[in-house]
Write a protein that binds this DNA or RNA. Sequence first.
DNA 1: GATGAATGAGCCTTCATTCAT
DNA 2: AATGAATGAAGGCTCATTCAT
Lengths: 201, 201, 201, 201
Amino acid sequence: MPKVGMPAIRKPQLIDATMEAINEVGLQKASVAMISRYAGVSPAIINHYFGGKNSLLEATMRSVLQQLSEGVRQRLDETDTDDVIARVKAIVGGNFDQRQLDSKVVKTWLAFWSQAMHEPSLYRLQRVNEQRLLTHLKVELKRVLPNEQAVFVAQSIAALIDGIWLRGALAPSGIDGDLAQRIITDYLERQLPADILKKYS
Amino acid sequence: MPKVGMPAIRKPQLIDATMEAINEVGLQKASVAMISRYAGVSPAIINHYFGGKNSLLEATMRSVLQQLSEGVRQRLDETDTDDVIARVKAIVGGNFDQRQLDSKVVKTWLAFWSQAMHEPSLYRLQRVNEQRLLTHLKVELKRVLPNEQAVFVAQSIAALIDGIWLRGALAPSGIDGDLAQRIITDYLERQLPADILKKYS
Amino acid sequence: MPKVGMPAIRKPQLIDATMEAINEVGLQKASVAMISRYAGVSPAIINHYFGGKNSLLEATMRSVLQQLSEGVRQRLDETDTDDVIARVKAIVGGNFDQRQLDSKVVKTWLAFWSQAMHEPSLYRLQRVNEQRLLTHLKVELKRVLPNEQAVFVAQSIAALIDGIWLRGALAPSGIDGDLAQRIITDYLERQLPADILKKYS
Amino acid sequence: MPKVGMPAIRKPQLIDATMEAINEVGLQKASVAMISRYAGVSPAIINHYFGGKNSLLEATMRSVLQQLSEGVRQRLDETDTDDVIARVKAIVGGNFDQRQLDSKVVKTWLAFWSQAMHEPSLYRLQRVNEQRLLTHLKVELKRVLPNEQAVFVAQSIAALIDGIWLRGALAPSGIDGDLAQRIITDYLERQLPADILKKYS
DNA sequence: GATGAATGAGCCTTCATTCAT
DNA sequence: AATGAATGAAGGCTCATTCAT
């Protein structure tokens, strides 16, 4: 009499426990034993559901990325298709969503970022994510800027997002989402031609 | 009389081997055995000279930070004290120095960045470094911008530096130092008042 | 459902293996690897059940002390409450019980005796044991001797017990329990007043 | 230009350092490095002068035994050849000499006692010492007691000496030499025939 | 004589994983 | 489905010893 639907319960539970463990002691010391303890289950469960620690870590990262991706998509959906400034703000806002600023998530992010350089499976996930951010920005900017400048500005904004996030991750005061918006909006406004600016303000 | 002066030879040798190991397999898997193999010495030597793996890692990070710090200082020394734009460029240049872009160094950086969140000793080193970059920038910018804006722009440029560096670290093509200079110079020029700009171009 | 109740099997098994190892090569060289080999299990099992080598050693000592304590208590229980000479003999007998004279146990005892001076946890156990012997003797002797002499005689008998035991531990012929009884009984008879003696013989 | 007479300086210095190390952390943790640190010399010195750690330990034990042996011999030399009670007291006194009660010496003794069971070279030294004490006592006692009783009493006194010493070694208050003399003298007086007793008191 | 350098062996412990139940 | 039992591999570290100087 196997209970049905257990995977749908156990998997998120274990992914959450993984992030908690990483938050507490770092990826390096987040052992299977500790993760399972956080989840309140036996260590063997992890192999049962994920087939190994590596798969669990990959699933955890995938979960974080998905959350980010959805945060951005949602905000874009709620934005006027033509209001470029608002759309960029939506993208920035999605990247500084409250859930993304949780210590647990931030540390998990950073851990995977470092880890990704040595694990092809994580690397691919990371790359897709990086490119998606850039693509989103380029799509919007190309509608109001010459092609070349659009790419240039997109790269800058992507760098600002990651840079502010990274520096905030290390700061004792945490990541300041509002400051991020102010910095990036200011930057964007200085790049847009006067007529576009006037149109949306 | 015994051989003397070995520490001066062994310590840098071991630090270099540490970076090589991190470059190859990541901090997590960079074991004492592997590091000593890269250095061509016995594993016990690490404890002999550093007293433990942790101290070696700390020394390695310290070494990377020092190299960065010196790169910036050198470039600043070669720059006209009054030319703010040139001085900011020097700071940026120091952060994108050829030695800092070496794969070995980049991966070591990132590994420590992630690790720093869970090891107070590394955390402190990292914080000092972060603050130093910000301070350097603020000192220069305050001479040409109102106080509040100077802080704002300094934070932005610091974020751009770290963001471009971080995104480049993950990109297969590596970090593009020239692009960094162009993006940041462009940003700075859009922030400076017209009269200042004219003066230095 | 997993196998259960293993601790009750494994713990005594590991404690016994520890004594065997100490018997064979001494406490100093009794490594976790060797102990687990004697027990026919993997070295990791020791940490699984005891959480470390030190705890296993402490548990081993505790086991020996308990065995001794029970041996004395049993013999006292089987003795007439009023027959002081018989009760002292019971105490001596318990200390020279066959199980306490086994080479394995003797060497373990001696090893811990030496070790106790530098490990507080072992020291406490040892002290309790020492004091218990003395107390047992004093309780009995005070019923037939003036207070001061009772203490004096109790100390002497305790010393005789430990001294005979210690010297026997080192002798190739082992510990001679009968001789111990004769020596101590003779000593006691020479200390007791004539009327008491007559009463119990 | 080798300095001459160095062995005569270094060897006692190292033996003393060994006892200090044993006193501080126990035989088990008294490493060559620590001993040499106590002696203020390089670890290699030990191999130079003793050819290995084991030899140093053996020499240390030999030194302790010699000191004991001399203490007894000296006191016997100062005693009337015919006064049996005084001679036994001399033997006891030698075993509870002030130098033998030093914490450093006591812990060294006990450490070796335990160690002796597993190292033939130490075992032999220990045995010789044990037998010498017994022989000394028997020689004296046979002059005033029937052969069989003399052996019996000698064994008892030897056991008292070792027992009091052992129990005192573990007690926080240390070894009480005076109590030892009182206990043993009392015991002896109760064993001696009345005429002998009268003769020497 | 004396020492710093260097090492190989071994130790305790941790850990991801497998398995019988 | 779930788990306690068990393990082999590996990790960091300590240590006695050797050697060139």
